[in-house]
């Protein structure tokens, strides 16, 4: 598998604030990498470094030419609904880097935008105002925009944030379809561990200023998850789906033992 992005012992942060230290991570062509971890752990910081938006304060980031053809899907909240834009206007933004000053958007560009909208199943919404759409529809618009220019890498930041269960499932199935049928490498940041472990091939777990990465089979085991979350965790299979759960029995036992010991010491 060709390497698209290779982080070699990088330290990441903003100004003097170091968020992540000694990070080594490889993203291969055709891979599906899930970046998971608690809120505020530095997942988006890691994504920015992978995309070249954040320079590491030490270490090296090596990106192949194919890794520069990125379709980026930012968090939906970062998009301001005040702007008077239709769905088609937003999707066409994916082509702006190709257009010269003064040039007009032609029929070819519009057709490509409509193709991307069809690909994500919302061609009928092309002339609707972005602000009037539901969360799931808005997410599809942003994914369609990322598909303009046929990227080799799709980077998504919390794509299912704030969605109900059917919408979340529908967006994840769409991402999987783009990955499997379109051959697009996927790099997805999410705090929803149970969602990511059922779609990704590799997991990068971000926490305590560090990143630990491996295949899903290597990373999603009770021992590894308990160590990463510093709390007893069970991994169950439900049909062909993995579910990561807090181990309540062990957790209660752990807590009671702690209280008893505290009482004895008091």
């Amino acid at each position: 598998m060709e390497t698209l992005i290779d982080l070699r012992s990088v330290t990441l942060g903003y100004g003097r604030n170091r968020v992540l230290r000694d990070v080594s991570l490889t993203v291969g062509d055709g891979d599906f990498v899930g970046v998971v971890g608690p809120n505020g752990s530095g997942k988006s910081t890691l994504l920015k470094a992978l995309l070249g938006l954040l320079r590491p304060s030490s270490g090296e980031v090596v990106r192949s030419d194919r890794a520069r053809e990125v379709g980026y899907v930012p968090q939906r909240d970062s998009i301001d609904p005040l702007y008077p834009l239709t769905v088609l206007d937003i999707v066409l933004m994916g082509l702006f880097r190709r257009l010269r000053p003064w040039s007009r958007i032609g029929r070819g560009e519009r057709d490509e935008a409509m193709r991307c909208l069809s690909h994500v199943g919302i061609a009928d919404l092309a002339n609707r105002e972005y602000a009037s759409l539901s969360g799931g529809q808005q997410q599809r618009v942003i994914i369609a925009r990322a598909l303009m220019g046929r990227p080799s890498l799709l980077a998504l930041d919390e794509p299912t944030n704030g969605m109900d269960l059917p919408a979340e499932r529908s967006i994840m199935d769409l991402i999987e379809r783009l990955h499997v049928e379109g051959g697009i490498t996927v790099l997805m940041v999410s705090h929803l561990l149970n969602t990511v472990v059922n779609y990704a091939h590799h997991i990068a777990f971000v926490g305590d200023g560090r990143v630990q990465a491996g295949t899903v089979a290597e990373m999603v085991t009770p021992a590894r998850m308990s160590e990463l979350y510093s709390s007893p965790v069970q991994v169950a299979m439900f049909g062909d789906r993995r579910i990561v759960l807090p181990d309540r029995a062990s957790h209660c036992e752990h807590e009671v033992r702690g209280r008893v010991e505290a009482g004895v010491n008091a």
Binding site: L51, G52, L53, Y72, P74, I79, D80, M93, R97, A155
Partner: peptide, 10 residues
């Protein structure tokens, strides 16, 4: 409108 996406596009 979307500075982060614009930055990824160069």
């Amino acid at each position: 409108f979307d500075p982060e996406m614009a930055a990824t596009h160069g």
